[in-house]
Nucleic acid binder design. Structure first.
Lengths: 235, 235
DNA sequence: CGACCCCTTGAGATACCTCAAACTAAGTGG
DNA sequence: CCACTTAGTTTGAGGTATCTCAAGGGGTCG
């Protein structure tokens, strides 16, 4: 939304062992000795909103650990429009298909400034071949993707548009400041819910009129969680 | 649809090494020596249509390899209705979350008579700990689930109802007799597409009137593939 | 200040849903 | 063997949510 520097910025090489979010990241369970197997540089890269980590169809060369920010996974439809199939948050991993030598299945685009670690696929492969701690992490991460995909389908692509928006808002609640959440462009919201930009806009506007949402700043809102839970149930 | 014996039938213990579909199954890459690690019985179980392999929320005790037939993965919504999130075909694996010690995420129900192999989770775990050939299979199977989930969302839950039905028909085309496909109950079809039973029925009836579909038998149809491709594009 | 982007709002069209009834096929029991 | 039940499909009619097309605001940035 902002858009100061429109470039991805290389921030230097990551220092994984001292990483602040390691306990929730792909390398969570690795031991001191395992890091000896990392033979290629892991770069820290910052993506400004709108910039792509990678594109659908590109040969998968690396996985990305999201350290901060928010990333959308997008597929483009026959008519050129986009459908957002998942959101990645801090601790999540993008582009795991690259570990299997496959092309990327989506285009990954930062929705908010996102600090990432780019891990070459060979690093993951080598670790996976040498430590069961890496398998466990990979499996649970893949399972998590499946879970998220299923939840996305059942909660964001099912029911009335109003219920979908309500469920999306609940999903976006800040984990810390639990009544507040940041939204993004109506077009992106629509692409997550399978509805049009206009419908999304109308519903958000209606929520605001009904005091279910209270605007705190540009696209930052205070949410009436009980009301949202009620709306999320059925129309 | 048929419904002769309404019971799941135990068919005996599987002989994995000689299995006819092993090359496409979870044990595809295993070597002779690996089978020594299988220390618990693998049962062959036949499920008649409507019967559940397992239920959502049950503690996951086993994965199932689908040898023949068709299985739906279902989630139930707040209002009691069902949403089908995936279909499993011969060679696919159901209930992989059990390998991670998690409860089942769905209810798995046979849509057509399904012959399955029930593999206790301990067997998979032990194999995974001892042979990289098992990891590779597990990872690619998990990835496949993600792929299917994403495809389900973008092709069966996006666009007009008519386009969704067309895409579903294309998905159901027999791999061998490539103009023909078997359908199932309109309610199930609706639950896959996120539309009502009536809408599904109307569209199938319309396709039949327009000679896009020609009924060959009970719920068996000949498909005009070109017409379906056209319809799948946009409205 | 004007250009641009995005959000909002309106009005009309329409696809889909809801409720209800008729029809079909297959199973059940007298 | 036939009337009866039952479950699923088809069809109709009316209502409504959502889409489409279009215009009008409110920021932000050059």
């Amino acid at each position: 939304m902002r858009g100061k520097s429109i470039e991805a910025a290389w921030r230097g090489q990551a220092e994984c062992q001292g990483c602040g979010i390691r306990e929730s990241a792909l390398f969570a369970d690795l031991l001191q000795q395992d890091f000896a197997l990392v033979h290629l540089p892991i770069d820290e890269i910052q993506f400004e909103p709108g910039l792509a980590l990678y594109h659908v169809g590109d040969p998968g060369q690396a996985v990305f650990t999201i350290r901060t920010g928010l990333v959308k996974l997008v597929r483009y439809l026959a008519d050129g429009s986009q459908r957002i199939v998942r959101l990645l948050r801090p601790g999540d991993t993008a582009g795991m298909e690259s570990v299997l030598g496959q092309d990327y299945e989506h285009t990954a685009i930062a929705l908010r400034p996102a600090l990432t670690c780019r891990i070459p696929r060979e690093v993951v492969t080598r670790l996976a071949e040498n430590t069961p701690r890496m398998h466990a992490q990979l499996m649970s991460r893949w399972q998590r993707q499946v879970q998220q995909a299923d939840a996305w389908l059942t909660s964001l692509s099912t029911g009335s548009a109003k219920a979908r928006v309500a469920r999306l808002l609940l999903l976006l609640l800040d984990q810390n400041a639990s009544r507040q959440c940041d939204l993004f462009g109506r077009e992106d919201m629509g692409a997550m819910l399978g509805v049009t930009t206009e419908t999304t806009s109308r519903i958000v506007a209606e929520f605001r009129r009904d005091r279910v949402l209270t605007e705190l700043g540009p696209n930052r809102y205070d949410c009436d969680v009980d009301a949202l839970l009620r709306l999320a149930g059925m129309d």
